[in-house]
Simulated scan of single mutants.
Amino acid sequence: MDWQQWHDRYDAPESPLAWRLRAVQDRIGAALDAAPPGPLRVISLCAGQGRDLLGVLPAHPRREDVRARLVERDPGNVAEVRRTATALGLPGVEAVVADAALLDHCADLVPADLVLLCGVFGNITSADIERTVEACTQLCAPGARVIWTRHRNAPDQVPRICAWFESRGFVREWTTSTDHVQSVTVHRFTATPAPLRPGTRVFDFVGYNRLRARESRTPLETDEPRGNG
């Protein structure tokens, strides 16, 4: 998969992914608006080219308060984030080439005020989704928001994922209607953060096509997952 070329799908204004990006950006803006005064820590896992955060931060009044780390395995995408952040005058935005499934890369930014999990849950197994939800209790400060996405193709996992969050001290603040195949949801953390566990690996990035192939019991079922954090 060419993960840089994959981002071209966002450039078609009427595509589901372009719609999802706009919805995520809107929720990021609302989360920054609602955050208390002072420094703000943002973590984005499997960040891609960071179009969600970088599409909001330059014009937002809290831009100078934000320290963000975008974790992404593809070096080309990370280079694009760095170029864009520099061009926009956002020294607080850092992009690292790393496996986003390893929480160690976020150790000095936790607990964070905003966690972005966009484009993650559609590419990992259900068991790994639940592990990632559990890991959010290590990443989030009290009152922090998690913005996450997931498609609603059958079987629709969105209600199940919401239940996993809500059983761990998260309150659902907002979600898109079921009319959209690409869903966006915001959960706010109301519990006490758990200590970060170094060395914790929370998921393997299998990829949407491989997951669908496994469900269909095709020969791809035996393929080894490859990460793209």
Rank of each mutant, 00 (worst) to 15 (best):
D26W: 09
R27W: 08
R27V: 10
I28W: 11
I28L: 08
G29S: 14
A30L: 15
A30V: 11
A31E: 02
D33P: 05
A34H: 12
G38S: 12
P39N: 01
P39Y: 11
P39V: 06
P39D: 11
L40I: 15
R41C: 04
R41D: 13
V42D: 06
V42N: 01
V42Y: 08
I43D: 08
I43H: 04
S44R: 00
L45F: 15
L45V: 14
C46H: 14
A47E: 08
G48F: 10
G48V: 05
G48S: 05
G50M: 04
G50C: 02
G50I: 00
R51E: 14
R51Y: 11
D52A: 12
D52S: 11
L54D: 10
L54P: 06
G55A: 01
G55M: 00
V56I: 05
V56H: 00
V56K: 04
L57V: 08
L57G: 03
P58W: 06
P58L: 02
A59K: 07
A59Y: 07
A59R: 14
H60G: 00
P61A: 10
R62A: 15
R62I: 08
R62W: 04
R63T: 01
R63V: 06
D65S: 11
D65N: 13
D65M: 07
A68M: 09
A68R: 05
A68K: 08
A68N: 02
R69I: 15
L70G: 06
V71I: 15
E72T: 00
E72R: 10
D74W: 03
P75K: 06
P75W: 04
N77P: 03
N77Q: 14
N77V: 01
A79H: 09
A79L: 12
A79W: 00
A79N: 00
E80T: 15
E80N: 11
E80C: 10
R82A: 13
R82W: 00
R82G: 03
R82H: 09
R83K: 13
R83A: 14
R83N: 12
R83D: 13
T84H: 03
A85M: 06
A87G: 11
L88I: 03
L90S: 05
P91T: 03
V93N: 01
V93G: 02
E94C: 06
E94W: 03
A95V: 08
V96K: 09
V96M: 08
V96R: 12
V97L: 05
D99F: 11
D99Y: 05
A101Y: 06
L102I: 12
L103I: 10
L103C: 03
L103Q: 03
L103K: 13
D104Q: 02
D104Y: 08
H105L: 02
C106Q: 12
A107Y: 06
D108K: 04
L109S: 02
A112M: 04
D113I: 05
D113E: 12
L114T: 04
L114P: 06
L114D: 04
L117Q: 04
L117Y: 01
L117C: 09
L117I: 14
C118A: 13
C118H: 13
G119K: 11
G119A: 10
V120F: 08
F121Q: 07
G122K: 00
G122Y: 00
G122T: 15
N123V: 11
N123T: 07
I124Q: 04
I124N: 00
T125Q: 01
S126M: 13
S126E: 15
A127K: 11
I129V: 15
I129E: 13
E130K: 09
R131G: 12
R131T: 13
T132M: 11
E134Y: 14
E134H: 14
A135W: 09
